[in-house]
Amino acid sequence: MISDRQDIIQRELEAGTGAAIGIAVDQSGTRTGLRLWFADLDERHGPIAELRPYGIRGYRVALGFGKFAGAIVRQIQAADAEDVGLARALVASISPAVDLQLFGQGRDDWTVDSGAFKITATARGLPDDQDEAVAKVCRDVIVPLMAAMAELIGYDVIEEEEKDGAHAHEGAIRVSTIRRRERNPRNRLLCIRLHGEKCACCGIEPRSAYGEAGSIIEVHHLEALSLLAVPRAYNPAIDLAPLCPNCHRAVHTRRPIPYSISELRALMSPHVDEAAVR
């Protein structure tokens, strides 16, 4: 039963969205389902997703808003163009094989225009193994949907950094656009969905090299937004690249303008198998 897989679902969603997830069993329909929401908003004041089995080897996800989500809807409507672009790209990254309905709107230009906004996604033909099936629908459908909402709401990651021997928290205060972008787990999620986990510079695939310890690919913003002379639209498909930790650190050894990937590749070309990066 789906209720027996709450741990799998919660782990997948929290890793993908960068936010704590609340979860509860829902027996109101003909088949038992789950309700999922951002824990710090509770299910009445924010977006909520319902997950239910559909057919023999499928699941249906319905994402909408709670009865008292007016404040969050207004916050989403005030999201800046960059956050909107990333949210739309996350939803657009869902496989075309998934039947996706966006309140009568398109994958590339949808907007949350009221609290009645709703997304319905139906995934069919999932693996026979139920643990694998529910993990797949989480990674491929629920994570990008809820990550899109998290981006519009403005969730930031809180990280600890050492400064003068003391720990400092960096979360609600945005030090700079580029620093926030590099640390945003939803950026990493989208970058991997679009480009895979092979380093765009040296060609290494950490997960293949290190197994379970290889989830270390990092996201590089190809052009630091803080250095743009003229503001332009943010396009995650061409503005992000996956880099291994070594290459990511290497491109940033030149400041204020980092090395481009082609420049760094030229520096290291005598030591790198060119076929690996193609």
Results as ranks from 00 to 15, higher is better:
Leu145Arg: 12
Lys118Gln: 15
Glu162Trp: 11
Ile178Pro: 00
Asp128Ile: 13
Val143Thr: 10
Lys163Asp: 07
Met146Arg: 03
Lys118Trp: 05
Ala133Gly: 06
Ala123Phe: 10
Ile173Gln: 08
Ala133Leu: 05
Thr120Lys: 15
Glu132Gln: 12
Cys138Val: 10
Gly154His: 04
Val137Gly: 09
Val143Cys: 09
Ala150Thr: 04
Glu161Val: 11
Gly125Glu: 06
Ser176Glu: 04
Asp128His: 11
Leu152Asp: 09
Glu160Gly: 14
Thr177Ile: 08
Ile178Met: 07
Ile119Met: 15
Gly154Ser: 08
Asp164Thr: 06
Cys138His: 08
Thr120Val: 15
Ala150Ile: 05
Arg124Thr: 15
Pro127Trp: 07
Glu162Gln: 11
Pro144Arg: 03
Arg139Phe: 00
Ile153Gln: 04
Met149Pro: 01
Glu151Gln: 13
Leu126Pro: 04
Asp164Glu: 14
Thr120Ser: 14
Lys136Phe: 06
His169Phe: 12
Arg124Trp: 04
Ala121Pro: 07
Gly165Lys: 09
Arg139Leu: 05
Ala150Lys: 03
Asp156Phe: 01
Met146Thr: 07
Ala123Gly: 06
Ile142Leu: 15
Arg124Ser: 14
His169Tyr: 13
Gln130Tyr: 08
Ala123Val: 14
Ser176Gly: 15
Thr120Asp: 15
Ala150Ser: 13
Ala133Phe: 02
Leu126Thr: 05
Glu159Gln: 07
Glu151Ser: 14
Val175Phe: 12
Val134Arg: 05
Gly154Glu: 05
Lys118Phe: 03
Val175Leu: 13
Ile153Ala: 08
Met149Asn: 11
Ala135Val: 02
Tyr155Val: 09
Lys118Arg: 15
Gly165Phe: 06
Val175Asp: 09
Pro127Gln: 09
Ile153Arg: 05
Gln130Ser: 14
Val175Asn: 10
Glu170Arg: 14
Gln130Ala: 10
Ala133Gln: 11
Glu151Tyr: 06
Lys163Cys: 03
Ile119Pro: 03
Asp129Glu: 13
Ala147Ser: 15
Ala135Tyr: 01
Leu152His: 09
Ala147Met: 03
Glu170Ala: 12
Ala166Thr: 12
Lys118Leu: 15
Asp128Ser: 14
Ile142Tyr: 02
Arg174Lys: 08
Ile158Glu: 00
Lys136Arg: 15
Leu152Arg: 10
Asp128Pro: 00
Arg139Pro: 06
Thr122Leu: 15
Asp140Pro: 01
Val157Pro: 00
Asp131Ser: 13
Leu126Met: 13
